[in-house]
Design a protein around this nucleic acid. Structure first.
Lengths: 233, 233
DNA sequence: TGTCCAACCAATTCGAAATTGGTTTGGGAC
DNA sequence: GTCCCAAACCAATTTCGAATTGGTTGGACA
């Protein structure tokens, strides 16, 4: 082999590439030039460059993706921030569990920060659920109540997470199996439970608000599971 | 006025439009034809059609948006499920507060459900943060550790919320003001705090895990605020 | 056998053009 | 003047084709 081919052997290209990475001023996102340009800049063939890049990728120094480019650092994990991707991989029970983890803490925060106006709005929503003539109306005001509580936490990111969870709840093909009665019965469990939550928030009782929300969601969860069990018969 | 101009008065156009809506077969998303087409189809001027549309919009029958079109139904509430919309309206401090509310509960759940493999992965991430040669690498492994904990909660929706929050954290342009040292100091507060969290999870100590995570995020928060204060001088 | 080069493939991004609701302007009709 | 219409213009949004990019294949060549 000639000296030139020696210098352009794979090991040589890898070290050359490392030197380049150490010296080069990469953009903020750590993207490096396309293979076609880089191979020319380093004076090696694309084939050889790709072998070297493969080595560095195996080492975890860089990561690549078709159409995107080659980047330094480790490959970003595929995030579940996308709603539709999320909905495909979960189910109502899991969503319910997530609500049980998140919403009590939201209620706790709301107890500290809710404004009198927001508390009044909660009362209005609560009253509307009592007056609801159909389940659809009931659910509408129920959602609104829960969202008002989330708003009362006075934290935009938290409200965003709540909305994401709500959207997910709707997206999950959740067998619209609503029991027969055309309207919520007057002694529906939610009525007193909602009242307890709002009372706790009004009294600035953080632990009470969290506990009341947890208790409420537990009965909602139980109803959900019961309905599923019935549907399974 | 002639009969024709009578028929094309605003009230007449509104009824004509209602009739159209009742009869027309709209696509799934409830979008109706562009104003230019619709005015021609109904045989009225665009000016008049727009007045009628304005009336229906005021009634809440339809909603419109530039570039999108006109749709039947009520305007979708501005849900904060969209990341970019979220990022514009918040700030690092709020995101930090949201983390303080969410992540301790995630750690609590993880203490119950984490698999030995996941705990091992946490240890690996923790070790990597110690070895990190640059802040970039450190943050990479730090993020990975926190996400592994979120994965350990075994709840897809919850993991989705965590990812949303992470994305938000990156999106919020927070003045990349990283203190001078080129690499994390060996006695960086996070090291012992991370270890405490992982230990609690391994011991299935739910309260301990939540408390440790809360303590950790509090110091992160304090550092963040200090850095901002310094930058403000 | 291995390397290089060129062409091709598919995922992704980019950008110009088209679309669309909202607004302004000028010309008539009354 | 007052009102309406048509046309043009504006800005937000969507659309779609072209360009880019990592990955792959096939032929030339040594």
């Amino acid at each position: 082999m000639s000296i030139i081919s020696e210098a352009s052997s794979e090991r040589g290209t890898v070290t050359q590439l490392r030197a380049y990475l150490a010296q080069a001023q990469l953009p903020e996102d750590g993207r490096l030039p396309p293979e076609r340009d880089l191979s020319e800049a380093l004076g090696v063939s694309r084939t050889e460059l790709r072998k070297a890049l493969g080595t560095l990728e195996a080492e975890g120094q860089i990561w690549r993706h078709v159409g995107k480019g080659t980047f330094v650092g480790s490959r970003p994990i595929d995030t579940f921030a996308d709603l539709s991707a999320l909905a495909k991989r979960t189910n109502p029970a899991e969503v319910m569990r997530a609500r049980l983890i998140i919403e009590p803490e939201i209620a706790r925060a709301a107890a500290l920060t809710a404004t009198p106006m927001q508390i009044a709005e909660m009362r209005v929503c609560h009253a509307r659920t009592r007056e609801a003539a159909t389940w659809r109306q009931y659910e509408n005001w129920d959602n609104r109540l829960h969202r008002t509580i989330a708003e009362a936490a006075q934290n935009i990111p938290l409200l965003g997470l709540f909305d994401t969870l709500s959207a997910l709840r709707r997206a999950v093909t959740w067998g619209r199996l609503r029991s027969n009665p055309v309207r919520p019965s007057p002694d529906h469990h939610s009525f007193t439970e909602h009242a307890t939550i709002i009372d706790a928030i009004e009294n600035r009782d953080m632990n009470g608000a969290a506990a009341a929300m947890r208790a409420h969601l537990r009965t909602v969860e139980r109803n959900l599971l019961d309905r599923q069990a019935m549907a399974g018969e």
